[in-house]
């Protein structure tokens, strides 16, 4: 199962990458824990997930081929 993870804004700067592929994450809560283990400082960041470009509020189960964006607060204009 491949999940593509995209990092944006300050979080891309923290992780040092724009994207990565993860195996074996069942949902966004699971993904969050995985990310916190890899980058503990991420706990100090405000961010939301978008799964396949849809903003989500609660845990969302993930399936093969899903694209999850990790997004800090928007700052357009």
């Amino acid at each position: 199962m491949h999940i593509k993870i995209l990092f944006f804004g300050s979080i891309g700067a923290l992780t040092g990458k724009n994207e990565m592929v993860l195996d074996g994450v069942s949902g966004t809560d699971d993904l969050k824990n995985h990310l916190f283990k890899t980058w503990p400082d991420l706990k100090n960041y405000t961010f939301r997930f978008a799964v396949n470009q849809e903003l989500i509020e609660e845990n969302r189960a993930l399936k093969d081929g899903d694209v999850v964006a990790i997004m800090p607060p928007f700052a357009g204009g």
């Binding site: 804004g9 300050s10 700067a13 964006a69 997004m71 928007f74 700052a75 357009g76």
Partner: peptide, 20 residues
């Protein structure tokens, strides 16, 4: 508020500041 855009201020000493 509703568009996935981010901005990084680039300061005169080349340091960076993310606007959130």
């Amino acid at each position: 508020h509703n568009v996935s855009i981010w901005k990084k201020e680039i300061m005169e000493d080349a340091s960076a500041n993310w606007v959130e």
